[in-house]
Structure formats: C-alpha cells, structure tokens
Amino acid sequence: MKTSPDSRARRKLIALTVSGVILVALIAVGGYGLFVGSHNTPPEEPPTSSPPAPVAPSQPDSFRPEVPRIVPTNDPELFAHRVATALFTWDTGSGLVPLDYTSAILEVGDPSGYEQAGLASDIATYMPTRGAWVKLREYATTQRIEIDTVVVPDSWADAAAQARPGQLPPGAIAYTIDGTRHRDGVWNGTAETLTVPVAFTLFLACPPDGDPCYLLRLSQLDNPLR
C-alpha cells in the first residue's frame, strides 16, 4: 500500500514536533548540580553558541523582537510558575532563536554565577536544537504550557537535609511542575495541535532578606522529584 506525499510529510512533521522529548531522553544531565559540588566552588565558564541565520524575511532595523522578561518576585511558588511558563513558551515565527529564550531565563539565574553554566546546560535540553528550530519554523510552530500543579516534592526535605554545609544557598527550595505542553502549527493549510504531559522540578532560592528569588537548576524533563 502506497503512502501519499501529504501523509509522509505530516508524519515527518509530527516526528519533528516531538523531537524535544526524544532529545531529552538521549541526554544525561548527570544530576542537578546542587548535590554535586559545593556552592563555594568557582563556576565554570558558561557555554557559548552562535544563533542560526534567520530563515524568515529580514525585519526592518527598527524592529528588534525581545523575549518577555520574567518579572522578579520573592514569592517562591509564583516565581516557579513564571519560570516554568517562560521555559515552555516560544514562537518560531517571532524572529527569535532558542538562545534568546535561554538568555531570558538565565537573567533570573544564580546571581553569584556558581550555577549558571549548569543551568545553561539544563535549559538547552528543554529547547529545540538549531536544526529542529529551522524545521519547526517552516510550519509556524509555537509552544506553550498549561500548568496543573506547582508543589514542593515530598523528597525535598530529605534531599536538603543530606546536602553538605554551604552546598545550598539560604532559602533554597524545589518545586515540581506537572502540566501539558501544547505545540501548535500549520500543516498543509490546516491548524494542528500536539499535546504532551510533562513533569519537571525547578530548584530555586528566595533569600530570607526579601531579595527576588533566583533559579538554580532544572531536573531532567519527565524525571522530577516526587
């Protein structure tokens, strides 16, 4: 039985759309960083990468798209909700690239710099690769997350108690997010949506002195603390 060109193209696109899940399954993060080294260990240099050349028509010089900033707060649950939303919200037709979305999240990362390199690596496993981004852009793909629950996992108390002195900053806490990832695109002139349940844990700190919360690390996607 022969497969029509439209059917083959649609299958290829669906495979690309879920490529993020496959990539994460193949990448071993190797721990959450918080329990690997002391918080007093000098940071590694963050990885650098160059954004791909834009595929869409160039915009006027006066037009400079920007990723919305994560609004600072000292409410840990609200901060976790905002970071999770930013982590899963992107638009391939915006003129931005994955590095732009990554940079917006790094802005609310550990101000000391000790966890920044690890955090950048964590975020990369949640984002499409440059090649996948170009393919997804052909179908005007966008992504968002519908958050169901934001809770402190039961295992966090034991994990924090086992941390060595100085390994966790003051106000450190973890939140596990459960929700649904939505990817929307246009295939052969028809709008399509793919939904996938997701779960992950954010490790963050909200200083007792009232300063804004900041992000430390992320768990592997679909491998959260419970």
Results as ranks from 00 to 15, higher is better:
Met1Tyr: 13
Thr3Asp: 07
Pro5Leu: 14
Arg8Cys: 01
Leu16Ala: 06
Leu16Cys: 03
Gly20Asp: 07
Gly20Phe: 04
Val21Leu: 09
Ile27Val: 15
Leu34Ile: 13
Phe35Glu: 08
Phe35Ile: 01
Gly37Glu: 12
Pro42Leu: 15
Pro43Phe: 10
Pro46His: 14
Pro52Ile: 14
Pro52Phe: 15
Val55Trp: 06
Ala56Tyr: 15
Ile70Ala: 08
Pro72Gln: 07
Pro72Asn: 06
Asp75Val: 12
Glu77Phe: 11
Leu78Ala: 09
Val83Trp: 13
Ala86Cys: 07
Thr89Asn: 08
Asp91Ile: 01
Thr92Trp: 02
Leu99Asn: 10
Tyr101Leu: 06
Leu106Val: 13
Glu107Thr: 11
Pro111Cys: 08
Gln116Phe: 03
Ala120Glu: 10
Ala120Lys: 15
Asp122Leu: 01
Asp122Ala: 07
Ala124Met: 09
Ala124Arg: 15
Tyr126Leu: 05
Thr129Glu: 04
Gly131Val: 08
Val134Met: 09
Thr142Trp: 04
Gln143Arg: 14
Arg144Gly: 03
Arg144Lys: 09
Asp148Asn: 10
Val150Gly: 09
Ala157Arg: 04
Ala159Glu: 04
Ala159Gly: 01
Ala159Tyr: 07
Ala160Lys: 06
Ala163Gly: 04
Ala163Trp: 01
Gly166Cys: 06
Ala172Tyr: 03
Ala174Ile: 03
Thr176His: 11
Asp178Ser: 15
Thr180Trp: 10
His182Arg: 08
Asn188His: 15
Thr190Asp: 14
Glu192Pro: 00
Pro197Asp: 15
Ala199Asp: 03
Cys206Ile: 12
Leu215His: 02
Pro224Met: 01
Pro224Cys: 01
Pro224Phe: 02
Leu225Val: 04
